[in-house]
Amino acid sequence: MQLPTFDDVLLAAQRISSHVHRTPLLNSSLLDSWLGHKVYFKVEALQRIGAFKLRGAINVLAWLEENGALPQHIVANSSGNHAQAVAYAASLFNIPATIYTTKTVSRVKAAATLYYGAQLAQFDTRNEADAAVATAAQQPGTMWIPPFNHPQIIAGQGTAALEALQDLKQVDGVFAPVGGGGLMAGTLLASRGLCPTAQVIGAEPLVANDAANSLREGRIVALPGPADTLADGAATPAVGDLTFPFLQQLDDFYEVEEAQIAYWTQWLQHLLKIHVEPTSAMVMAAVVSWLQEQEKPSTALVILSGGNIDQTRMQQIWQTDYLNQPPILVD
């Protein structure tokens, strides 16, 4: 497969415009005053299915329809948000779908996947689920829509940053979380196309740092086993061979500790008054570290990737109350 380009992101935006929300940009004047900089949030938590993943899933199926190649059955593997996205997109095109995932998948994400009409096949480990979906994809008339490693997935995910940069015009830094790298790759394409002077920066959990290890070694390095992180959307075993070349073009990359993930989840929910997934909130640790290095007031764009949190995860996030420690930038 060829790597996608900025033109592919533009085409994806045209394909999906009637099926997705143009999500809002939010900011917090209080947060801005504390930090001494401006931070804007592209709120994909308010997207249909509550996450950016819908953009890529719909773009793949709309692209297939353009080419007269819609399948008879769709399969996908996912930790949750991609599952909902594929289930929803498949229902739009009247195609049955089966999602392969783990038994530890977020219950709220699993319930939504079933509600949208897909079947759910659950396994003990992510590797077992990935192996099962690869086998299922060999059946005639079946297409596997991967969660990140597909040109049209990357292009579709890039439309979130595209919209935000069309609205903001100029920013100094663009930030997104990294799981498999699809959102980050699409964000890089959109940023280089619309705002080439902006730095583009990724973040992932320190305990699930396969992307950081891959960047250090110059090759794709997988996690040794399942990652126990609050940021479940970034617990992907390894980045893809299509997404990795884009990650190698990033201007910086941060690894975030679990306490920081919980801290920023609490504060963004408090400041923005919306549900924010830990995977989204994690990026703020990178933003603050980056802002400390800036010599003048700067503007950051954060792709707030999703807002689907179940009760168990919420209890983990709030085990310690961090709201008595305001996020004031320390020089």
Results as ranks from 00 to 15, higher is better:
21 H>N: 06
111 A>S: 15
193 G>L: 03
86 V>F: 08
157 Q>F: 05
216 R>G: 11
226 P>I: 02
108 V>E: 10
263 Y>E: 11
9 V>H: 15
216 R>P: 06
260 Q>T: 00
160 A>H: 01
55 R>F: 01
305 S>Q: 13
294 Q>R: 13
82 H>V: 06
316 Q>M: 00
139 Q>L: 15
182 G>E: 08
327 P>T: 04
34 W>F: 12
283 V>Q: 05
324 N>G: 00
143 M>T: 15
190 A>E: 09
67 N>T: 13
122 Q>I: 08
55 R>E: 01
5 T>I: 10
167 D>H: 13
311 Q>R: 08
110 A>S: 10
1 M>Q: 04
121 A>E: 15
131 A>Q: 13
135 T>L: 14
287 V>M: 02
317 I>R: 01
14 Q>L: 12
101 T>V: 02
307 G>V: 02
315 Q>T: 09
24 P>H: 04
138 Q>L: 12
208 A>F: 07
97 A>E: 03
170 Q>L: 09
33 S>P: 00
267 W>V: 08
216 R>E: 12
320 T>E: 11
252 D>R: 00
91 S>G: 03
138 Q>D: 03
206 L>N: 01
329 L>S: 01
160 A>P: 02
153 I>K: 13
156 G>F: 09
21 H>F: 00
120 L>T: 05
262 A>E: 01
36 G>N: 09
44 E>R: 08
135 T>E: 10
157 Q>G: 10
238 A>N: 14
242 L>K: 15
82 H>F: 05
136 A>P: 06
202 G>T: 07
254 Y>L: 05
195 C>G: 02
127 N>T: 12
16 I>N: 03
167 D>M: 10
244 F>L: 14
178 V>C: 12
234 A>L: 14
6 F>Y: 11
20 V>T: 14
234 A>E: 06
304 L>M: 10
83 A>L: 04
117 G>Q: 04
222 A>Q: 15
144 W>I: 07
176 A>R: 10
95 I>K: 00
48 R>H: 11
228 D>T: 01
52 F>S: 05
38 K>R: 12
194 L>N: 08
169 K>S: 09
238 A>Q: 15
312 T>I: 04
73 H>Q: 15
59 N>L: 05
176 A>G: 14
3 L>K: 12
271 L>V: 06
23 T>D: 03
157 Q>M: 07
76 A>M: 07
167 D>W: 02
13 A>S: 12
163 E>L: 07
32 D>W: 13
58 I>L: 14
103 K>L: 15
218 G>D: 12
53 K>I: 10
50 G>H: 05
325 Q>H: 02
195 C>D: 15
146 P>L: 11
280 S>M: 01
133 V>R: 04
100 Y>Q: 03
108 V>W: 00
320 T>R: 07
19 H>L: 04
266 Q>S: 04
84 Q>G: 02
240 G>R: 09
98 T>Q: 15
23 T>Y: 02
115 Y>S: 07
197 T>N: 14
16 I>P: 01
119 Q>C: 07
